[in-house]
C-alpha cells in the first residue's frame, strides 16, 4: 500500500511540518484540533461563571476596584430572598412568561393548523406570517413604540375602531395596567410565527393515511383531533414551549426598547432588574448572587421540563 492517501499526503507535506508533526500521537493531534475551542469555552463561559460564583460571596463593586473586597458569605443570597424589589421583578417575569407562552401556543398552533389545510397560496401566507420573526428585536421594539403612540400610533387607532374610545385616551406604554400587556403583545406578535413553524413541522409529520384509517374507523373530526393530531404534535409543541420559555425568562431587548422597565418598575423583569443592580447601582457582588439564582432557576426548571418531554416522546 505504497500509494495510500496517507502516504501521498505525507509526501506532499513540507519537510519542516513533517518533522514537527512526526512523533506526535493521534491523541496529541486531536488535542491540537480541539484545544482552541476548549480554551475559548473556558475563557468566555466557564471562567466567568466560576468568577461570578466567587463574586457573589463578596461585597465587590466594579466601579470602585481599589476598595478592599470583603468576604460576606451567604449574606447577598439572604438579602436577595428578602428583597421585595426582586420578588416583584420575578413576579413580572412570571406574568410575562406565562401569558406569552399561553398566547403563542394557542395562536401558533391555530395558525399552523389553518396553514396546514391545503389551499391555494398557503406557502405565501407562511412567508408573510413568519416575517416578524426575521426582524431584529431592536427594530421591532423601535417601531412598536411608534405604533403605540397615543396620537399618531396605528395600534391605538385600530383599537378605537372596535371600542369607539378616543385614541389618545389610553397609553399602552405609559399606563401601569397596560404596559405589561404592551410587551406581551409585541413578543407574541414577533414570536408566534416560531411556535407556528414548529407546530407546522409536527402537523406535516402526520401522514394522510392515518386520517384515512381514522375516517374508515368512524372517528369524528373531533376525536381525530384529540386522539391523533394533538398527541402526535405534542412533543413538537412542548419543544416550542421550552425554547420560548428559556428565551423569555431572560427577555431584555424588547422591554428596554419599549418601556425601559417603566412606568415605575411595573415592567421591570428580572433581567432588567439585574442589569440595574449590576451596572447602575454597581452592586456587583449582590447582582452576581442574583444572576446565580436566576441561572439555577432556569437550569432546574428546564431539566425537569426536558424529563417530562422525553416521557411524552416515549409514550
Amino acid at each position: 500500500m505504497n500509494d495510500s492517501v496517507a502516504t501521498r499526503a505525507a509526501q506532499a507535506t513540507p519537510p519542516g511540518v513533517a518533522r514537527r508533526v512526526k512523533g506526535l500521537s493521534d491523541r496529541a493531534i486531536a488535542w491540537i484540533f480541539v484545544g482552541p475551542t476548549i480554551f475559548l469555552l473556558l475563557a468566555i463561559n466557564i471562567f466567568p461563571l466560576i468568577w461570578t460564583i466567587r463574586l457573589s460571596f463578596t461585597n465587590f463593586r466594579a466601579n470602585r476596584p481599589n476598595r478592599e473586597v470583603e468576604w460576606v458569605g451567604l449574606r447577598n443570597y439572604e438579602r436577595i430572598l428578602g428583597d421585595s424589589d426582586i420578588w416583584l421583578s420575578m413576579q413580572a417575569t412570571a406574568h410575562f412568561l406565562i401569558w406569552t407562552i399561553v398566547l403563542q401556543v394557542l395562536i401558533g398552533f391555530t395558525l399552523a393548523w389553518l396553514i396546514n389545510k391545503k389551499f391555494r397560496g398557503n406557502d405565501l401566507w407562511t412567508t408573510i406570517i413568519v416575517l416578524p420573526m426575521m426582524l431584529s428585536p431592536a427594530v421591532v421594539g423601535n417601531f412598536w413604540t411608534f405604533l403605540y403612540q397615543p396620537q399618531i400610533g396605528l395600534f391605538n387607532y385600530v383599537i378605537t375602531w372596535f371600542t369607539g374610545a378616543d385614541p389618545s385616551s389610553f397609553e399602552m406604554l405609559g399606563s401601569v395596567n397596560l404596559a405589561p400587556w404592551s410587551i406581551i403583545i409585541v413578543d407574541t406578535w414577533m414570536w408566534t410565527p416560531f411556535v407556528m413553524l414548529i407546530c407546522l413541522a409536527g402537523l406535516r409529520s402526520i401522514p394522510d393515511y392515518i386520517y384515512e384509517a381514522a375516517e374508515i374507523d368512524r372517528a369524528s373530526k373531533l376525536r381525530q383531533f384529540f386522539t391523533i393530531t394533538l398527541p402526535m404534535v405534542l412533543p413538537f409543541l412542548m419543544l416550542a414551549v421550552l425554547f420560548r420559555g428559556i428565551e423569555n425568562f431572560k427577555m431584555f431587548d424588547l422591554v428596554v426598547q419599549l418601556t425601559g422597565g417603566g412606568p415605575g418598575s411595573i415592567t421591570e423583569l428580572a433581567s432588567i432588574n439585574l442589569k440595574r443592580e449590576a451596572f447602575e447601582k454597581w452592586r456587583t457582588g449582590y447582582s452576581s448572587a442574583f444572576a446565580i439564582i436566576l441561572f439555577v432557576t432556569v437550569f432546574g426548571l428546564a431539566s425537569i421540563y426536558v424529563k417530562a418531554l422525553n416521557k411524552v416522546k416515549e409514550r
Partner: peptide, 21 residues
Amino acid sequence: LTPAQRDVAMVFQQYSLYPHL
C-alpha cells in the same frame, strides 16, 4: 356519503396503524 356513513372496514397496504397507540 363519508367513509364513516358507508360503514366499511379497510386494511391498508401500508398498515396505517396509529403509531402513538
